[in-house]
């Protein structure tokens, strides 16, 4: 089975608004999948449907080759964006409670909890009450109870919020380690830098529609719009005037300390990089030639704004 989750034409409406309108997506096994979108786009509703908390009005969700049922919950670990713990309970008792809800026996749960507590260096908290913990500390406990039962599918909604950079990195490392061990990760965040860093594929949801799906590297190439950056040694004027008929120059960048100047441009005709390179080669010493990839931030903003302008039909992908 190629995909661990297939969302098939799912719709969900509440009293005053449509949360999801005919959304489909496929999450490939063993990858990190980004679920992106502005606030209120319908991400949380979609995650709750995948997690069997709410039922869709229309459409279906296929988990590991069969229709999603309540029994699949033990194979999913979900860390919601808005999360809390029982304040009056001790950390260890509470972690045990959540672990046992996921179907672990008391002994199993205690054993793997101790391992995880050691790994994240929080063993000394076991007998503390939750109300004594800081937000970041509580988040670590929540992370552990989400992953403890070794689920095949992990869903993280803004997992890094509330963490300092050091702990965020620890968490990132653990998430990737879980992926390497075979788990699939669905990752919902507004932090586009971490999307570029972690995600293999993404889906962008806006106003209850899926407006963009694809592989992160491919998408960035596609959204590069034939933009390139050329690094060279030589005369800026000569080079720029030589390539101007073939490209639209975005900006020339003066030479840096190593004497390498840069110029950014977009090709007038796609796949014309050869001619451009040949022309440039005749006028300067070429050092580098790279496609200019847009950040996920740019892609996010551009796609959402475009879709907001033409809200009638989502663009075909």
């Amino acid at each position: 089975m190629e995909n661990i989750i297939t969302v098939d034409n799912v719709s969900k409406a509440f009293t005053n608004h449509v949360a999801l309108d005919d959304v489909s997506l496929e999450v490939p096994r063993g990858k990190v999948y980004g679920l992106l979108g502005p606030n209120g786009a319908g991400k949380t509703t979609l995650i709750r449907i995948i997690n069997h908390i709410t039922a869709p009005d229309k459409g279906r969700v296929i988990f590991d080759g069969h229709d999603l049922t309540a029994a699949d919950i033990v194979n999913i670990g979900y860390l919601p964006e808005e999360r809390g713990l029982y304040k009056k309970m001790k950390v260890g008792d509470q972690a045990l409670f959540f672990a046992r809800l996921k179907g672990l026996s008391k002994q199993q749960a205690e054993k793997s909890l101790r391992e995880w507590f050691d790994k994240l260096e929080i063993s000394s908290w076991w007998n503390k009450k939750v109300e004594e913990l800081s937000k970041g500390m509580a988040q670590k406990v929540q992370f552990i109870v989400t992953v403890l039962h070794n689920p095949r599918l992990l869903i993280f909604d803004e997992p890094f919020s509330g963490f300092d950079p050091i702990n965020a990195n620890v968490l990132k490392r653990e998430i990737l380690a879980l992926r390497d061990a075979g788990a699939t990760v669905i990752f919902s965040t507004h932090n586009m830098a971490s999307v570029e860093e972690l995600c293999d594929n993404i889906t962008l949801i806006n106003k209850s529609h899926n407006i963009l799906t694809g592989n992160v590297a491919e998408l960035r190439r596609r959204f590069s719009d034939n933009r390139y950056e050329l690094g060279y040694e030589g005369d800026e004027k000569a080079l720029v005037s030589a390539i101007t008929p073939l490209v639209k120059v975005i900006e020339p960048i003066p030479a840096d300390r190593d004497g390498i100047s840069r110029v950014r441009f977009s090709l007038n005709a796609p796949d014309d990089s050869r001619t451009v390179l040949a022309t440039a080669n005749a006028n300067a010493l070429i050092r580098t030639f790279n496609p200019l990839l847009p950040s996920m931030d740019e892609i996010f903003i551009r796609t959402v704004e475009e879709s907001n302008h033409q809200t009638t039909t989502p663009p075909a992908i």
Partner: peptide, 17 residues
Amino acid sequence: EEKNNRVLELVVSSVKP
């Protein structure tokens, strides 16, 4: 109280509401 401090979100990810 559970709803207010959002522990509920974590619990319903494991059990049916």
